[in-house]
């Protein structure tokens, strides 16, 4: 049975009361639920294993740079009930760290490596957290808003 975002929020709130922070629903924009970073693994296991929710498909996982903090956005979908939800966590900019959900959905493996490569977010418990798109000895986190393109890399001039 297809559930709306508010119903999913109520179900989550009844199970993990304080870890679910808020739901934001605006016209034209997708609704999202902000959750506490430390409880993300338990929340995802609950979302996958509960019968009425059955979120068995992780569509996308990406990092975000809100100018004062970093964040991670999870887009989930259920192939059985045909409903979807977006979760968000807000992280500290100096030491961004969140539990890895690679054990829940295997597709998170490469997505989390990309978020680490582009933003520097550490995923605890990830089996192989190394860079994936940039070269293995690249310095800096490219998609952060304050990133400066390097001048030289291995002797090649980078700017135009």
């Amino acid at each position: 049975m297809k559930l709306q975002a508010k119903d999913i929020f109520d179900k989550l709130k009844s199970e993990f009361s304080d870890s679910i922070i808020e739901i934001k629903e605006d016209k034209g924009s997708d609704p999202f639920i902000t959750v506490d970073a430390k409880k993300v693994l338990d929340i995802c296991l609950f979302l996958r294993d509960t019968e009425e929710l059955s979120f068995d498909y992780l569509s996308s996982l990406n990092g975000m740079d809100y100018k004062n903090n970093l964040g991670v956005v999870y887009n989930l979908f259920s192939t059985i009930h045909n409903h979807k939800i977006t979760l968000k966590v807000i992280l500290d900019k100096e030491q961004p760290s969140v539990p890895s959900i690679e054990g829940v959905w295997k597709s998170a493996n490469w997505h989390e490596r990309e978020a680490y490569d582009m933003f520097g977010i550490k995923f605890e418990g990830h089996p192989n957290l190394i860079r994936i798109l940039s070269p293995y000895d690249w310095e800096g986190y490219p998609l952060r808003k304050d990133y400066k393109t390097p001048e030289y890399y291995h002797g090649f001039k980078v700017p135009y």
Binding site: D26, S29, S59, N62, N75
Partner: peptide, 22 residues
């Protein structure tokens, strides 16, 4: 566009292509 975010996906020949636009 007004302030907001959306995750939009279509069926391309290779699979699900989604864009998360903020």
């Amino acid at each position: 566009p007004p302030v907001g975010e959306v995750y939009c996906r279509t069926e391309t020949p290779k699979g699900e292509l989604g864009y998360y636009i903020v």
